[in-house]
């Protein structure tokens, strides 16, 4: 069992990295790119037999408190078998 967490910068926050990647894509000729947001991806291995609901709750707490910074980032959490 694994938890997958995707962390992205909030829309209102300056994302110079995303902007730079977007400009590079345009220079390379990839058309129609209207935005790039560079974030983080975390994969967390969970012990076999872990209760999915409990893991969801615990990791949601960890993502809010520690893995992401809610002032500048949003996250999506998914638990997969």
């Amino acid at each position: 069992m694994k938890a997958k967490i995707i962390i992205t910068p909030k829309k209102a926050v300056l994302d110079p990295q995303g902007k730079t990647v977007q400009t590079a894509l345009e220079h390379m000729g990839y058309l129609g790119v209207t935005g790039v947001h560079v974030g983080k991806y975390l994969e967390i291995d969970l012990a076999p037999g872990t209760d999915k609901g409990a893991a969801q709750k615990a990791l949601d707490d960890a993502a809010h408190k520690f893995l992401s910074n809610p002032v500048i980032e949003d996250y999506r959490l998914e638990i997969v078998d």
Partner: peptide, 11 residues
């Protein structure tokens, strides 16, 4: 303290 510090504007 409130707020956060992020990457410099020019990277």
């Amino acid at each position: 303290l409130p707020g956060a510090l992020i990457r410099n504007r020019d990277l």
